[in-house]
């Protein structure tokens, strides 16, 4: 009547037995694999030119990759910058993020760094200056040091893994934290291997 077509109804048709999960992976009835999110550290060498940071951050936001931190800075080569991007995604998402990042024209190379990679983050924590000695003691515990002391505040500098900084920030909580700034993770692989001799 109004564009209807002949043919058997949906419930009269041949049906397949299988199913896929939401990631488009066929579900094996024997061993169902679901991918839980995990943390991955991606290190990318990119051309050091205007607009690259916007291009990379735009890619991650529009494809809804869950970014924990993104740092960027110059390298030994003036024309090249290195980005360290920490994401939390299931395995297929990590693979996608790497491939999409690699596709950007200014991207030279992308590598996921091994879990035992050297990772460091810098934090500056400004707390109340009421108990400078106690602040110093906690700073020392975390291998940090006071870098600015005034009558009403002490600013402590710390470096370490993200977990260590998390713990330190928590420990400083007792002194009435005024401000915290963290750089996000920078990372390099252990040993002689470099991104440039990657391929």
């Amino acid at each position: 009547m109004t564009g209807e077509m002949p043919g058997p109804a949906p419930d009269e048709r041949m049906r397949p037995a299988g199913r896929r999960n939401t990631q488009g992976i066929r579900i094996d009835p024997e061993a169902e694999v679901t991918h839980e999110p995990r943390q991955a550290v991606l290190s990318a060498l990119v051309e050091h030119e205007p607009g690259v940071l916007a291009e990379v951050s735009g890619l991650f936001s529009r494809r809804q990759f869950n970014i924990e931190s993104l740092t960027v800075g110059p390298t030994e080569d003036d024309d090249v910058a290195r980005m360290t991007i920490v994401i939390e995604e299931p395995q297929p998402g990590i693979e996608q993020a790497k491939k999409q990042l690699q596709k950007l024209v200014p991207t030279i190379s992308v590598t996921e760094l091994a879990p035992e990679t050297t990772r460091r983050e810098l934090a500056l924590i400004k707390v109340s200056g009421e108990k400078p000695d106690d602040v110093n003691a906690v700073a020392e515990m975390y291998g940090g040091q006071a870098v600015d002391v005034t009558a009403d505040s002490v600013t402590v500098e710390l470096t370490g893994s993200q977990q260590k900084i998390d713990a330190a920030v928590e420990a400083f909580d007792q002194f009435d934290v005024h401000e915290v700034v963290r750089t996000g993770t920078a990372a390099l692989e252990r040993g002689g291997h470099t991104l440039e001799n990657d391929d």
């Binding site: 037995a17 199913r19 896929r20 939401t22 990631q23 488009g24």
Partner: peptide, 8 residues
């Protein structure tokens, strides 16, 4: 995608 070519 759950029902896309699920046996293939």
């Amino acid at each position: 995608v759950d029902t896309f070519a699920p046996d293939a």
